[in-house]
């Protein structure tokens, strides 16, 4: 790991000194202090830790650091500037779409990826895009409404 591994996180170039097989979720949370990416299972089965890797929504728990080398990572913190939240973030608040909120970071990332390639998804398309994300509180329908609402708003 001499010299570390360099990747771009939320638009900034970062060099990380960590073993190259370290799961990206630990690098983001513990090395780079980006706590918005949640750790839920460590096995790519719950969706809580999704981030954008070169625009694709991937589980950061199942992505080793080496696989992110030289790539662009966007976390929930990087979806928009804090002073002007992403339309999806605004829509989640407008719809009060959450209870405990632990699943929301990963869902936001996958929803952002969806809207990037499908500007006007149907409800069924939204559900399909979010199907790998588990929510235990039962906030699904509100979340789906929020994504549909965001799709109608300017980016």
């Amino acid at each position: 790991m001499a010299g570390g591994i360099t990747l771009t996180v939320n638009g900034k170039s970062r060099t990380v000194q960590a073993p190259q097989d370290t799961p990206l979720v630990h690098v983001l949370r513990n090395e780079l202090g980006l706590k918005g990416t949640r750790f839920g299972c460590g096995a790519n089965q719950c969706g809580a830790c999704h981030v954008l890797l070169d625009g694709h929504s991937v589980p950061a728990c199942d992505t080793p650091l080496w696989a992110a080398a030289g790539k662009h990572v966007v976390t929930v913190e990087g979806l928009a500037a804090p002073e002007r939240p992403h339309r999806l973030q605004r829509a989640l608040i407008e719809e009060q779409a959450g209870q405990c909120g632990f699943c929301l970071s990963g869902i936001l990332v996958s929803a952002a990826a969806l809207l990037e390639h499908n500007a006007a998804p149907t409800e069924a398309e939204v559900r399909a895009a979010l199907d790998r994300h588990l929510c235990r509180c039962g906030a699904h329908n509100r979340i789906v409404r929020a994504v549909l609402r965001a799709a109608t708003e300017a980016a």
Partner: peptide, 21 residues
């Protein structure tokens, strides 16, 4: 009145809020 949840903005913006953080 349906006041918005006080904790939701942190959770939606990915701010440290949970014990895990």
């Amino acid at each position: 009145r349906s006041a918005p949840r006080l904790d939701l903005p942190d959770k939606v913006l990915g701010r440290p809020r949970f014990i895990h953080d």
